[in-house]
Write a protein that binds this DNA or RNA. Structure first.
Length: 1054
RNA sequence: GGGCCCAUAGCUCAGCUCGGUUAGAGCGCAUCCCUGAUAAGGAUGAGGUCGAUGGUUCAAAUCCAUCUGGGCCCA
């Protein structure tokens, strides 16, 4: 391939990963990202917030998804002229980081941290671990072309960030919304900390487990022959049984104990048959109110009854939907604790903070709470207390980080009273645009409607310390800044690392009573950190006030759907508490990436796709394109190497090859579009057509991206590229190998050039690498062009180019070509054999409109002329049916009468009238009805004996009569094709000239070749062509089978 | 148990908002064609009771209800 000074040569066999690496280097060397920002400085701001990834592991392919969506809209808005500030961020704190470090240290229990490692060393290692993973993330972020400012990232562990978080907490404290409270909370006995409700609701938290489902007898103290029956799936809670609850209005029944002669059971009447079979009879009935106050013998004697324990209590939460209608109460449930507080029940904790049964529980002491279940069931059975035990499969919550089954514990923790702000939170949600919209009032709206207080404190080490100090007299104080703390402590603490253990050493005299105040040892939920980023990323309010005010709220955020209870919530809650409004206007909520079998990707399943493997094999553009356009973004999607490969082939390669085609011929012709213009209306129709399609594409893609619908936009681009490659280039390629002085050739070059340049701009937000490669090469000769597509402006719509009629006509042309090809296949007539004519059938008005486009049909079908079906009725018969969509509204139920009338009418006559007068008449129910062409569905049928391809009212028939002239031309085309193949296998470039020699034994073939010698020579670029002469030496040779005979072709370079 | 989402060809997915009588692509498969850009492209074929049932309607993949199965979220 010859080199040209104008363009870099383009190999059709491209390695996208290598190309991308080159583009990346160029971006870095020339600071293209920085230039895109500086170029838009002072322009209208479009605000993006980066949701900080947790730096506790290497990024997976699902992280690429979110980053692709974030990037596409930011790039789009930048090209539209907005200044889109993009500050990267890293979520540094929290249990996930601690767990990674615990694993690194080989620690399995929390207490080992303090005993063996020390808090200082532990948090130091957390910091190092974060830094290491952030490096991994930064590397991937850069490689996939997600443009965020990694050099100016916010880190939630930085002192500035922590100070802003303190300030926010102080605001919340001042509003009286930050309080300590005693609540039942999910608690992880391995991590030895409680979990917030949104942590508990992380993916994977609920796992299906099989637990014992036990029915237990609680014999009445006064009447041991009769027992209450309670049901539980957590036998270990029976150790701490406090009381039993009944519904006061529920009807209970006393029934015979099926296992023990002369004994009785009490259960809800509604549950009786379910539990004991249809045969069971109620011997006695009573209401729950009748039972209240009765004493029973508890399943175990570890909890002293006292005056109030182990009695029947009323509870409005009791239902007869499951269980026995009598609920066993233990200090492990919200409802249970409410009753305990109300009725002053004996609370004895039988499980310790590590999840083990306390030593006072006899033989159960020291057992892991889950392991105690089996021993407890055995014990109950031996003592005749167990009525029944089954296995029960249900979803049970597990710690989302370490996978330990959770406990529900009554504990004292710090809360933000978000439940008092429900209305405001909901109002903030109303201001927000959700994509997909169903989440707004669905999943997220429900969550807000059922909002519970935000459990903020964590008994852990690596996190933003809760800035609350307390003195021995119980006075508490929230500190809102380092300077405030310095003042209280009487020393300058501005340089202090605000993390544990250093902050714990800061004490001061209580302002109220002067006794020493020490910090409450908790750290806070890391979700508060990330939700604070609109403020804390600028160190607001200590610094960055202008930046904050300009960039609050965000125009756009995007994360996966699991963030509804995570970051989406913490952002909304904090901003609403501080500013009274949400901090984001639009949110694109993504589904999960699943593997090709539809299973969730997880490390434990080993089905995670490493993004680096994809990048090395197929490149970042292919991965991005699949994420952005394959499937519905908010549904979970199957992704595998196969689907990425397909995205590459279908889109990127098609685009690339069209581009390669242009550059190949533009280089040969030294074509430079700079400053050249041919008014669109002076270009051929086929050019005007593709430009009209381009115009439509620009509009649709712009609209789609404005609507945050990357998928719709991407698919429109893909369709355009397919039209461009497989129709425009296909039908126009001969125009490119004449001379550029010819104005038609110039028009073709200009048209395709413009299509490619605009496509490069449209696809730039989606596939930033290939678009820049194409753009820079195509605009290379133009000294005024932007140095990168990402510095270019988004294409402007151009009203002048819209041409719906032309688009419609081309659609018809393509349909007729498809029908013609179909007719050829039916007739087993290869396309290389020219035919005299094709006969087109269809509504006359439409066919008349085709005009010059019939040239496309003759070329594609390889026929000399096209004819119209006028006077060709012998070829076809018509059937006319109602167009129900048009006639339905007009006639309603009578539409069937019209259909009947049409069926009874002579179709040919009807079509003839329609063609002549533009309307038709039928008799319906005795009345004459006028019908327009739009109201009728005309179809044609082939008559027996004719080869005709048809669809709806359209058809194409071929004249299969092959004259000797046509046959000779067919021979020539066969030979041309054979020689072209030979050129290719001989490794010749498209512009290389050859010497050709052809020989054959068949006289008629020889004659055909003689007649078309000039045609053959010019088509294959032969400077000389010998017939029946041997060429000497090492010429490349092939045998071409032609129409029953054989031609031997040899060629060599002159 | 409750909420949300999904169910269309062997596989991946459009179409459903706003109902219209022949339900479309791609991958894979078979046969053939085309190739002076293309790891391409085209034609034909096999492959669908549009998850099931009921309803609304002249007309339902599309709207409504119920059910089944799957996923997610929550109890």
């Amino acid at each position: 391939m010859s080199e040209s000074a104008l363009y870099r040569s383009v190999e059709p066999q491209v390695s996208f990963p290598e190309m991308e690496s080159r583009v990346l280097e160029g971006w870095a060397a020339r600071d293209v990202f920085g230039k895109t920002l500086r170029q838009r400085e002072g322009g209208p701001e479009w605000v993006f917030y980066e949701g900080p990834p947790t730096a506790n592991g290497k990024p997976g392919i699902h992280h690429v998804e979110a980053r692709a969506f974030k990037d596409v809209f930011c790039r789009f808005q930048t090209m539209r002229g907005h200044y889109v500030h993009r500050k990267a961020g890293w979520d540094c704190h929290g249990l996930p980081v601690e767990i990674a470090v615990e694993q690194e240290l080989g620690i399995t229990q929390k207490r080992e941290i303090e005993e063996k490692v020390g808090i200082g060393e532990f948090t130091r290692r957390c910091r190092v671990s974060v830094q290491r993973y952030v490096d991994d993330w930064a590397r991937l972020t850069d490689r996939i072309g997600f443009w965020v400012d990694l050099d100016d990232a916010y880190w939630t562990m930085s002192s500035d960030y922590v100070e802003s978080v303190w300030w926010l907490l102080k605001q919340i404290w001042d509003k009286g919304l930050l309080e300590e409270d005693f609540k039942v909370v999910p608690y992880c006995p391995r991590c030895e900390t409680s979990l917030s409700s949104h942590e508990q609701h992380q993916p994977d938290a609920y796992q299906t487990v099989v637990d014992p489902s036990v029915y237990v007898r609680l014999p009445l103290a006064e009447d041991p022959a009769t027992a209450l029956v309670v049901w539980t799936t957590t036998p270990w809670t029976l150790l701490a049984n406090m009381a039993a609850a009944v519904g006061v209005d529920v009807t209970y029944a006393k029934v015979a104990d099926p296992d023990l002669e002369g004994r009785y059971l009490v259960v809800a009447k509604d549950r009786m048959k379910q539990l004991l079979g249809d045969e069971v009879e109620a011997l006695e009935e009573m209401t729950g109110a009748d039972l209240v106050g009765i004493s029973y013998t508890p399943p175990f004697g570890f909890v002293p009854s006292g005056p109030r324990g182990h009695r029947v209590r009323p509870g409005d939460f009791v239902s007869t939907e499951e269980g026995t209608g009598i609920v066993h109460l233990a200090p492990y449930g919200e409802d249970d604790m409410a009753v305990a507080r109300r009725d002053d029940l004996p609370i004895v904790q039988m499980i310790d903070g590590t999840g083990h049964v306390v030593p006072s529980a006899g033989s159960f002491g020291g057992l892991w709470f889950k392991d105690a279940d089996a021993a407890i069931v055995r014990d109950l059975d031996q003592r005749g207390v167990l009525l029944r035990s089954e296995n029960y499969e249900h979803a049970y919550p597990h710690c989302w980080r370490c996978n330990t089954p959770l406990l529900y514990f009554a504990r004292k923790d710090w809360y933000i009273r978000t439940s008092q702000l429900r209305d405001q939170l909901q109002a903030s949600n109303e201001e927000t645009n959700w994509q997909p919209p169903t989440i707004k009032h669905g999943r997220f709206g429900d969550w807000l409607a059922n909002n519970v207080d935000w459990s903020l404190s964590r008994d852990r080490y690596w996190g933003t310390p809760l800035p609350v100090w307390r003195c021995d007299n119980g006075h508490t104080l929230c500190v809102g800044s380092f300077s405030e703390l310095s003042e209280l402590a009487g020393e300058d603490l501005s340089g202090l690392d605000p993390h544990r253990p250093y902050i714990d050493e800061v004490t001061f005299a209580c302002p109220q009573c002067s006794t020493e105040a020490t910090r409450v040892k908790s750290v806070i939920d890391a979700w508060f950190d990330s939700g604070a980023m609109p403020f804390a990323q600028w160190h607001y309010p200590f610094e960055g006030e202008a930046a904050f005010e300009t960039r609050f709220p965000a125009d756009f955020i995007s994360e996966a759907i699991d963030q509804t209870r995570g970051w989406f919530y913490s952002l909304l809650a904090i901003a609403t508490m501080i500013r009274g409004h949400n901090s984001f206007k639009n949110v694109v909520c993504l589904g999960h990436i699943v593997d090709e079998a539809g299973r969730k990707m997880s490390k434990s399943r080993g089905n995670v796709i490493d993004p680096w493997v994809v990048i090395d094999q197929q490149g970042a553009d292919a991965m991005r394109w699949l994420m952005l356009t394959g499937g519905t973004p908010w549904s979970s999607r199957r992704v595998g190497m196969q689907s990425i490969q397909e995205a590459l082939r279908k889109y990127l390669l098609t685009l690339w090859n069209t581009y390669s085609f242009w550059v190949t011929y533009a280089s040969l012709e030294a074509f430079d579009p700079t400053g050249m213009d041919i008014p669109v209306k002076e270009r051929p129709e086929t050019d005007r057509w593709i430009l009209a399609e381009l115009e439509d594409t620009v509009r649709e893609v712009t609209r789609a991206l404005d609507d945050f619908d990357a998928t719709r936009g991407g698919r429109r681009i893909e369709r355009f590229v397919d039209d461009l490659s497989n129709w425009y280039v296909r039908t126009n390629r001969r125009r490119f190998w004449r001379s550029t002085t010819d104005s038609d050739t110039r028009a073709a070059f200009l048209t395709l050039w413009e299509c490619l340049v605009v496509t490069a701009k449209l696809t730039a937000p989606f596939t930033p690498f290939v678009s820049d490669e194409i753009f820079t090469n195509l605009t290379g000769p133009d000294g005024n062009a932007p140095e990168s597509v990402h510095l270019a402006d988004w294409p402007q719509p151009d009203e002048m180019r819209v041409d719906d009629a032309l688009v419609r006509r081309m659609r018809l042309t393509r349909k007729l070509v498809a029908l013609g090809r179909s007719a050829r296949t039916d007739a087993r007539m290869r396309v290389r054999q020219p035919l005299a004519r094709a006969v087109l059938v269809g509504p006359a008005a439409e066919l008349r409109e085709l005009g010059d486009l019939t040239g496309v049909i003759t070329d594609e079908l390889n026929v000399k002329v096209v004819d119209y079906a006028r006077g060709m009725e012998e070829l076809v018969s018509y059937s006319v049916k109602p167009n129900f969509k048009a006639l339905g509204p007009r006639f309603g139920a009578r539409v069937k009468g019209v259909a009947g009338a049409l069926a009874a009418t002579d179709a040919h006559a009807l079509v003839a009238t329609l063609e002549k007068e533009g309307r038709a008449f039928v008799a319906v129910d005795g009345a004459e009805v006028e019908l327009t062409p739009e109201e009728l569905d005309v179809r044609i049928e082939g008559r027996p004996g004719f080869s005709l391809a048809r669809e709806g009212p359209y058809g194409v028939a071929l004249d299969l009569d092959i004259t000797p002239e046509l046959r000779a031309e067919g021979v020539a085309r066969e030979v041309i094709r054979g020689v072209q193949d030979l050129r290719k296998t001989a490794g010749l470039a498209v512009e290389d000239r050859i010497e050709l020699s052809l020989s054959t034994d068949d006289d008629s073939i020889a004659e055909a070749l003689k007649a078309h010698l000039e045609y053959v020579s010019s088509e294959v670029l032969a400077t000389t062509t010998h017939l029946d002469e041997e060429t000497a030496g090492d010429a490349a040779a092939t045998i071409i089978e032609v129409d029953g005979g054989v031609v031997t072709a040899k060629l060599q370079r002159p």
